[in-house]
């Protein structure tokens, strides 16, 4: 570990807000993208399943 304490690690010699903003926004962006990807997948599957069901009932 380069830093002497956890508090110093968070503070990053005063650059903490910039560094953590960069890491936080990147992380949240990827989480949102993954969630959107998952929702799109579920939506496509739901539509196809519904159509298969309708075809079977006819």
């Amino acid at each position: 570990m380069y830093f002497d304490s956890f508090a110093e690690f968070i503070n990053m010699g005063g650059h903490g807000p910039y560094v953590w903003a960069a890491y936080g926004v990147t992380f949240v962006s990827f989480v949102i993208y993954l969630a959107a990807q998952r929702r799109a997948r579920k939506e496509v599957e739901r539509k196809i399943r519904n159509r298969i069901r309708r075809e079977l009932n006819r």
Partner: peptide
Amino acid sequence: KQGNSYRI
């Protein structure tokens, strides 16, 4: 030169 900000 840049301190810890370079970790970005």
